[in-house]
């Protein structure tokens, strides 16, 4: 069985933030909620690298393990989804998640959290596919249409890969073989040396 995965090639990501924009636009994610974000390491220094991070759809997801109301579930091909009708906004998944994927719209004063929102791998949620309810709660369901997540599909440098783990790792392996395994044979070091 396939296992859906994201992979971001740090050698190719150019920090254009298009994945972030595409995600926000595709799912009409509200202000202050970011399903996907680009993190730049060593910003402004030699060796700067950026990686696009969202929910990584873990096999043994910590969010699902700590959820007090047990609202998470995994699709047969390994996409971690959750039920917003059950979510109580306790914030536990945010504490447990290594990638900072769970987000909460703030609904009222004192930092009271709304229902958790996170990357769905463009697979919607527990509502009828393509229904209004699904779109409002979870965003578009591209997977049901046979499409992969928009962030990866429209990545200009094909840095962000999404799909079955086998396929994605095949593509990435071929890529690494072609450009050579050592980063110094490709990229900044090859062009400018160890400056």
């Amino acid at each position: 069985m396939a296992r859906m995965k994201f992979l971001c090639d740090a050698e190719r990501c150019i920090e254009c933030q298009a994945c972030v924009t595409a995600c926000k636009s595709e799912h009409e994610v509200p202000w202050g909620v970011n399903r996907r974000r680009v993190i730049v390491m060593d910003d402004g220094l030699p060796g700067e690298k950026s990686v696009s991070v969202a929910c990584m759809h873990c096999s043994d997801a910590p969010c699902a393990a700590v959820c007090p109301v047990d609202c998470f579930y995994t699709t047969a091909d390994g996409i971690v989804l959750h039920d917003k009708d059950l979510c109580i906004g306790c914030g536990y998944c945010f504490y447990a998640c290594p990638f900072g994927a769970p987000q909460y719209p703030q609904q009222s004063a004192f930092g009271v959290r709304g229902k958790m929102d996170k990357c769905t791998f463009c697979a919607g949620g527990p509502e009828t596919a393509h229904s209004e309810a699904e779109y409002v709660k979870y965003g578009a369901n591209r997977i049901a249409e046979g499409k992969l997540p928009l962030c990866a599909e429209m990545c200009s440098t094909k840095a962000l890969l999404a799909g079955d783990g086998d396929v994605v790792s095949d593509i990435y392996r071929q890529r690494v073989m072609r450009r050579g395994g050592r980063p110094q044979t490709w990229g900044w070091q090859a062009a400018y040396g160890n400056a």
Partner: peptide
């Protein structure tokens, strides 16, 4: 949580058949 097993509302996208169909 087990892959494809969910106790709450039914999600067509999550089922084994749907995953196989779209694979």
């Amino acid at each position: 949580h087990e892959p494809g097993v969910y106790k709450g509302k039914h999600d067509e996208t999550a089922t084994q058949e749907a995953a196989e169909r779209r694979q």
